[in-house]
Simulated assay, not measured.
Amino acid sequence: MSTPTRSVLVIGGGAAGNAAAILLRRADIAVDLIEAKDDWNATAGSGITLQGNALRVLRELGVWERVRASGHGFGTVGITAPDGTVLHVAEDVRTGGDDLPATVGIQRPRLQQILIDAVRASGATVRLGVRAASLDQDQERERERDQDRDQDRDRDGVTVDFTDGTTGRYDLVIAADGVSSATRAAIGITAEPEPTGMAIWRIAAPRPEGVVRTDLTYGGPAYIAGYCPTGEFTLYAYVAEANRDRASIPPESYADEMRSLARHYGGFWPEITPHITDPAKVNYTWFDQMLVEGSWHRGRVVLAGDSAHCCPPTLAQGAALSLEDALVLTELLTGADEWDDALFQAYYERRIQRVRPVVEASVQIGRWQLDGVRDADVPGLMGRTMALLKERP
């Protein structure tokens, strides 16, 4: 009797979930992907900075050429004074290798659409507006063994009831449903994101002709003010400050709030700030931190991406780490005869040694700013952390 095709449910259609679906389908594993939102690309955000280690995974996914054509690649980062004076220009570490740019900026909706197109082309079954209502794992319940049942039912797996009234059975569930993951809580992992004390305002805007790289300003009315080119004519701009009670900031005031901070900065900011007018296009987000310890799985349900870890964007590594999770997990799955606790623990051990330094460094950089530490070795910490990421995940 031939071995039946393995099946995987991916919960969540962000970076980690999309990447896992693409790579598993390449190995001829049946994939169902569910996404809670009806519009898969509705809240993709303004822009994103992708370091080389993220680009390396995107190349593995077969979408690098589209990303390169859609974004803006560069190899340096500028440090400026609040008035716009350039204080220092540093070479970015090429964490993806010398054959890839150090950094690419791209509009988030564009990156998401590229990944969506690749998931659909892979042959994965996609259902939008659907959640997992319950997960029933074989190994967590006592049941009588029926010797006459078929081989597919004889393997350990997970039976999932969906919110649309349907039921599915899978060899594995990958929980890639984000930092507020309902799946993480459902399998008994109690970790929750914690605010770091800082928040960020972001907006997409036209790119002034002279903006060819990321420039960062530390100080002024905000802790950080910066921008990143995301294409020939676009960039995204951001300012980070101490977090405030969200209830005290009505959404209709978002543009006014961001503009009141941005207007104090020089350089290219006077060309960017006049475009901060539509509050619906301004995103306000607290910085959170979380790292699930011990293991990222319970039985046949395993976490990936922001459901397992999150950190402030001070190193621009959130999406990169999520993409790497998918690459490592699928590499282990497609290379193993048995999907068991040892395999899932190996996934955790391999990832935690890479993720932990990034989370800790990202949080530390923000903490130094909140505490007003003047002699903090931010460049040194950044350099050491990014050097670690040059190694393949």
Rank of each mutant, 00 (worst) to 15 (best):
Pro279Tyr: 10
Tyr347His: 14
Ala15Met: 15
Pro221Thr: 12
Gly266Trp: 08
Val173Gln: 03
Asp148Arg: 12
Met1Ser: 15
Gly17Ser: 08
Asp156Thr: 07
Ala19Gln: 09
Thr80Gln: 15
Asp150Cys: 11
Ala199Gly: 10
Leu235Thr: 00
Trp269His: 01
Ile114Ala: 09
Ala185Ile: 09
Leu303His: 04
Gln139Asp: 13
Ala185Trp: 09
Pro274Val: 07
Cys228Ala: 11
Glu241Ala: 11
Asp215Cys: 11
Ala316Gln: 05
Ile116Val: 10
Asn41Leu: 13
Asp98Phe: 07
Cys228Glu: 09
Asp306Cys: 06
Pro229Glu: 04
Met258Ser: 03
Ala326Asn: 07
Pro229Gly: 03
Gly168Arg: 04
Ile352Pro: 04
Thr43Tyr: 13
Lys37Val: 02
Arg145Pro: 12
Arg244Lys: 08
Pro208Lys: 02
Trp286Lys: 07
Trp286Asp: 15
Ile11Glu: 03
Val57Asn: 01
Val10Gly: 01
Glu257Arg: 15
Gly96Val: 03
Gly97Val: 08
Arg184Pro: 00
Thr330Arg: 00
Ile187Val: 15
Val302Ile: 14
Leu135Phe: 10
Leu216Gln: 07
Ala346Phe: 02
Ala262Cys: 14
Thr103Lys: 10
Tyr227Val: 04
Ala204Glu: 02
Tyr284Thr: 10
Leu111Arg: 11
Gly226Arg: 04
Tyr254Lys: 01
Asp337Cys: 04
Tyr254Ile: 06
Arg374Met: 03
Arg350Ala: 10
Asp154Pro: 06
Glu271Gln: 15
Ser307Asp: 09
Leu329Glu: 02
Arg141Gly: 06
Gly188Cys: 08
Gln112Asn: 13
Ile224Val: 14
Leu55His: 08
Arg26Leu: 12
Pro312Arg: 11
Ile200Ala: 14
Arg351Gly: 04
Leu323Gly: 02
Pro270Lys: 08
Ile11Phe: 06
Val359Gly: 10
Gly366Arg: 01
Asp83Ala: 09
Ala36Lys: 15
Val179Cys: 07
Ala69His: 11
Trp339Glu: 04
Ala133Asn: 10
Gly220Leu: 02
Ala342Val: 09
Cys310Ala: 00
Lys390His: 13
Ile48Pro: 01
Met198Ala: 09
Val359Asp: 06
Ser7Glu: 05
Gly178Leu: 07
Leu23Glu: 06
Ile34Asp: 03
Arg354Asp: 01
Thr166Lys: 05
Gly12Thr: 12
Arg6Ser: 11
